[in-house]
Design a protein around this nucleic acid. Structure first.
Length: 392
RNA sequence: GGAGGCUUCGCCUAGUCUGGUCUAUGGCGCCGCACUGCUAAUGCGGUUGGGGUCUUAAAGCCCCUCCCGGGUUCGAAUCCCGGAGCCUCCGCCA
């Protein structure tokens, strides 16, 4: 905090000094063309001297601004009152929804998926390495169906569907807060100085970067993209199947709104996630993520975790964050308030479907013979089939 | 990958060769007023934006802003260097 205040003070002083000098310089320069031959040399030398001083003052402003920026970037978002204290295990369960299936000896999603000819991790590893996979046949159809269902759901709720770029510039990555703690999670293309996004939240947030937008009603986007994550710190974790992979697809909701509307918008996104979970008929619980597990940009984060029978526990399927003005400040996204003054907007994001959902869908709808029931909402996307049966 | 052209205040556009009078021209759109009176025309006026300062408020004042970043100069939309984006043409190609 002290560093911030000092940097801000320092910048103000530097700017004031620069502007005063610059004004003087302009005034004198303007006199030169009209000056008589005998006063001209004196003015010229005076102007020259001022020009040097201006240059020094300008450099000082640049340094002060860089320091202020650095100080600002170091500060994480402010946690909202009411958010549980603690770290990864400090979450509070808000509610549990749906009945867990009663399965004697549940098969895991990979066993089910392989039997259905839906998932092929061996060839994924052969071609690209560990944590890569192929979705084939019914697996590919389920994936596309799920995402299509999610996108339609978003469109019905007034969201604009978007297929964004998945390679972005450093400033876009930085503006969304992903070059801080997440830096090692991000794929970087050295030769082109571009980053592969780990979520379409990045290009969606940066979409309005540097703009003054109209949020008299919230701007809502639903991005469909592939997502790329290095999973650098996760050796040995979730190595089986497609629970944790380097590349997956996702439909992500993103809202720009007035800060005072952000809390309501957050609940709206959560409600939409729960509606999607209901459509795929998967039991889940909603948790309020604890302060220590929020990351740098969220002020509150609500996750929906699906029941995973083979693991006997809940795993994250969706996550919705209220980033308040954190991202908007970095990206320069503003709106005009009632007085017409530019103010930073609030940004929020939330998951509507991901490849990981297939895990929960396959496992929760499995039947003793290894077949898998298809939730009604997804049936149109798999040729109307109600049950998927193992091949051969 | 190669060659050329372009980028100006919401949109279009003048200005760049020949640096200061650019406090950036004109049109469209938009806002206000007048007039006519009927989903319009015409006339007049206003209209780049951002930051700061001051004020009850308005006005005013200062800085920045002609794609971005450097440079030359007392002074840059204008000259020089670098970069980005867009558009043509050539090459290459899943």
């Amino acid at each position: 905090m002290d560093r911030l205040l000092a940097a801000d003070e320092n910048r103000r002083a530097a700017v004031a000094r620069f502007e005063a000098l610059r004004a003087d310089q302009k005034r004198i320069s303007k006199q030169i063309p009209k000056a008589s031959p005998d006063t001209r040399p004196a003015l010229l030398s005076q102007a020259k001297e001022l020009a040097d001083q201006v240059k020094v003052a300008e450099a000082a402003v640049g340094e002060a601004e860089a320091e202020l920026r650095a100080a600002q970037l170091a500060v994480p978002n402010i946690v909202q009152p009411g958010v549980p204290e603690g770290g990864e295990d400090g979450f509070v369960v808000l509610r549990e929804v749906g009945d867990r299936p009663d399965i004697a000896e549940p098969k895991d999603h990979l066993e089910l998926g392989e039997a259905l000819g839906a998932i092929d991790v061996e060839r994924g590893a052969k071609v690209s390495g560990s944590r890569f996979y192929y979705l084939t046949g019914i697996g590919a159809l389920l994936e596309l169906g799920l995402l299509q269902l999610a996108l339609s759901h978003a469109v019905e709720h007034g969201f604009t569907p978007v297929i964004p770029p998945v390679l972005v510039k450093p400033e876009s990555m930085e503006g969304t807060g992903f070059l801080g703690a997440h830096a090692t999670e991000v794929y970087r293309l050295e030769a082109d100085d571009l980053y592969l996004v780990g979520t379409s939240e990045v290009p969606l947030a940066a979409y309005h970067a540097g703009e003054i937008i109209d949020v008299s009603s919230p701007l809502r986007y639903a991005g469909w993209s592939s997502c790329f994550r290095r999973e650098a710190g996760s050796y040995g974790k979730d190595v089986r199947g497609i629970l944790r992979v380097h590349q997956f697809d996702k439909v992500e909701m993103f809202s720009f709104c007035k800060p005072e509307e952000a809390a309501d918008e957050h609940l709206r996104l959560l409600a939409m996630e729960e509606e999607m979970l209901a459509k795929v008929e998967v039991p889940y619980r909603v948790i309020d993520v604890a302060a220590g597990d929020l990351g740098s940009s969220a002020s509150r984060k609500l996750d929906c975790e699906a029941w995973i029978p083979s693991q006997g526990r809940y795993r994250e399927l969706t996550s919705t964050s209220n980033c308040t003005t954190f991202q908007a400040r970095r990206l320069g996204i503003r709106y005009r308030d009632a007085d017409g003054r530019p103010q930073h907007v609030a940004t929020l994001n939330g998951t509507l479907a991901t490849t990981r959902w297939l895990v929960a869908i396959l496992e929760n709808h499995q039947q003793p013979d290894g077949s898998v029931r298809v939730p009604k909402a997804l049936q149109p996307y798999v040729g109307g089939r109600e049950v998927l049966t193992p091949q051969g």
